[in-house]
Design a protein around this nucleic acid. Sequence first.
DNA 1: CTCGGTTTGTTCTCGCGTTCACAAACTCCT
DNA 2: AGGAGTTTGTGAACGCGAGAACAAACCGAG
Lengths: 204, 204
Amino acid sequence: MARLPVYLRALTTLSEQGTATCSSEHLAAAAGVNSAKLRKDLSYLGSYGTRGVGYDVDYLRYQIAREIGVTQDWPVVIVGIGNLGHALANYSGFRSRGFRVVALLDADPRRHEEVVAGVDVRPFDDLEQIVRDHSVAIGVIATPALAAQDVADRMVGCGITSILNFAPTVLSVPEGVDVRKVDLSIELQILAYHEQRKTHGATT
Amino acid sequence: MARLPVYLRALTTLSEQGTATCSSEHLAAAAGVNSAKLRKDLSYLGSYGTRGVGYDVDYLRYQIAREIGVTQDWPVVIVGIGNLGHALANYSGFRSRGFRVVALLDADPRRHEEVVAGVDVRPFDDLEQIVRDHSVAIGVIATPALAAQDVADRMVGCGITSILNFAPTVLSVPEGVDVRKVDLSIELQILAYHEQRKTHGATT
DNA sequence: CTCGGTTTGTTCTCGCGTTCACAAACTCCT
DNA sequence: AGGAGTTTGTGAACGCGAGAACAAACCGAG
Ligand SMILES: NC(=O)c1ccc[n+]([C@@H]2O[C@H](COP(=O)([O-])OP(=O)(O)OC[C@H]3O[C@@H](n4cnc5c(N)ncnc54)[C@H](O)[C@@H]3O)[C@@H](O)[C@H]2O)c1
Ligand SMILES: NC(=O)c1ccc[n+]([C@@H]2O[C@H](COP(=O)([O-])OP(=O)(O)OC[C@H]3O[C@@H](n4cnc5c(N)ncnc54)[C@H](O)[C@@H]3O)[C@@H](O)[C@H]2O)c1
């Protein structure tokens, strides 16, 4: 389920606050979901709670982390080191959650002199070798929209099976490759849509 | 619906390619959805297609833009001009879609000397005045997680009713305020989850 | 040991979104 | 003008996730 990471973060927060055990009601409130939904999600992993008591925070946290795969170390490559690529490379929240940026790639030779967050920017053509050397399975695309499909094809071609795409394009990839799209303009447009309905008061 | 912006972008692409009219099948492929779903979504706005022919690209594009509210100009404030805030402020895709960044706010006085993308960074305490002067309805939070709830409260307090949150926290806001959350770590964790299932081959 | 209070795990129902399938409507060719 | 082919708009069935409700299990007090 896509909610497990949210639970994981809520549990981490609780653990840092010194909470040793918590009820589904409490955790659900921290995660912003219904308590019945939370219990159903957790029961899908197994019976890690104790009736009448609740869940052991650290134990449940480990179980969810194991289920998601955060106990492993995931090597990641980022392609397109522009505005967004810089921010992503500098983001500490990735490493702390088991994701290790092994390479930053860009097609622009002028970028290749840069070192961002301790990793030097390398030519995009190094992709195949880097993916092979580090067994990379996850790639991040932060290039302009026009280049995104080409980058995705190259990624798929050398064995990457999960792509996080920031470019505003629908990528076509073969079966078995997961793509998640983050489109900030669309997020804003959805907000604007609701905003317009609020003020304009359309009822239809 | 949350898919309208996707259709809008697909239509824009088609228009730039010189396509004057298109079938629901064609547009659905470009948007990555089922054609029946697309037709039902569009019929919700009205009957803008012609049977046996398809949809007039530019006409439909305008109708969707009007429905979403992209024909208007939406003033936006960004709070937290760190790594991510810089990238957002520099992003040209916002302005081209009707969103105008009227202010960049940060609590750190050292940031106040900076000018990012032609807009100078101002103290966070200027929030109320800026929102009032520009009738801002949409706020973007790019601060660390600990500050996010405080920032959201201040935003709500001065009349902002739509928030785009990049901090990894669940914000609690009163009824009537929309919050959309973008959490990149969660996106990666979802990919890792599927990745693990692929390789490890769990069947349960 | 028993009983009341508490909380999980699960079942059942409801509602929504998706998808199929088809009639209505339009174009073009003859 | 008429018919064949094409495409929209929509009614109906399907599937699935969400939420309510309840029984089973656990703890602690007496
Ligand atoms: N900056 C933002 O806040 C933001 C917000 C939303 C979406 N986006 C999207 O993210 C993407 C990147 O945005 P940005 O602001 O960083 O753009 P940018 O122009 O600053 O950076 C793009 C980088 O990609 C590199 N590049 C171009 N073609 C390439 C290729 N074929 N292979 C490898 N690298 C290539 C360029 O050299 C450049 O360094 C864009 O698609 C944009 O629409 C950005
Ligand atoms: N950088 C990324 O790529 C990335 C990716 C995913 C999520 N995030 C999240 O986005 C947020 C920002 O990330 P970042 O890398 O830009 O962090 P950052 O530390 O570079 O920037 C945060 C900025 O917020 C300012 N700030 C702190 N408290 C504030 C307050 N109360 N009011 C106003 N401004 C305040 C700081 O002065 C700083 O300039 C974080 O919550 C982070 O978890 C960032």
